Simulated scan of single mutants.
Amino acid sequence: MRSLFKISGFFIGFLLLSQCAPKTGSEKELRSAIKKFNTAFQEGNVELLSSMITDGYSHTNGTSKMIGRDVWLNYLKKRAKDIEAGKIKVLAYTMDELDIQLLQNSAIVTARIQVETQQQDTVVQNAYRVTNIWTFQDGKWKRAGFHDGKIQ
């Protein structure tokens, strides 16, 4: 009878601990966060983007050195003003060839981004290979790092 109580106590304890253990984000939640992030970038929604990156965010483009969170957000603010004033029009912004590798509470995401923008009378089309590092913090996915390389 004692061993039955010990075994029962063990399973009850395990169930209670598993309910208190930190949750990890699902791939479905991550895909949703990525879509939300890309839409916010396309539209110039700096407030939303700011809430979706980590405090130690690292951003690197193929032609520049790494910049941190504050410098990237300042760039986004200028870009948002240009979008609002009509100086920049984002005609298309798509992400495809998405590959996600979940690693407990983080993920490595690779993809291709195709973007078409217009500045004055000039339309520019570009394509990039990107690598994003996402982490699951405080119950939601946040982007921790970004790198791209131009492919077109």
Rank of each mutant, 00 (worst) to 15 (best):
E43Q: 15
G44Q: 05
G44Y: 05
N45V: 09
N45I: 10
N45C: 08
V46S: 07
V46P: 07
E47C: 02
E47R: 10
E47I: 09
L48S: 09
S50A: 13
S51C: 08
I53E: 00
I53Q: 00
T54D: 03
T54Y: 04
D55I: 08
Y57E: 06
S58N: 10
S58V: 10
H59A: 10
T60P: 03
T60F: 01
N61S: 12
N61Q: 12
N61M: 10
G62K: 13
T63H: 09
T63N: 12
S64V: 04
S64H: 10
S64E: 12
K65W: 04
K65Q: 10
M66V: 11
I67F: 02
I67L: 04
R69G: 06
V71K: 13
V71A: 14
W72D: 04
W72E: 08
L73I: 13
N74P: 02
N74Y: 02
Y75P: 00
Y75L: 09
L76N: 08
K77G: 01
K77A: 03
K78M: 08
K78E: 09
R79K: 10
R79S: 02
A80L: 05
K81W: 00
K81E: 11
K81A: 11
E84T: 07
E84Q: 11
A85W: 05
G86L: 06
I88A: 01
K89D: 06
Y93A: 11
T94D: 11
M95R: 14
D96M: 03
E97D: 15
E97M: 08
E97L: 05
E97C: 05
D99R: 14
Q101W: 05
Q101P: 01
L103D: 14
L103H: 13
Q104L: 13
Q104P: 00
S106I: 04
S106K: 06
S106C: 06
I108Q: 06
V109K: 03
V109S: 03
T110M: 12
T110F: 03
T110N: 13
T110H: 05
R112A: 13
R112E: 15
Q114S: 15
E116S: 14
T117I: 15
T117L: 14
T117H: 04
Q118A: 12
Q118R: 15
Q118N: 13
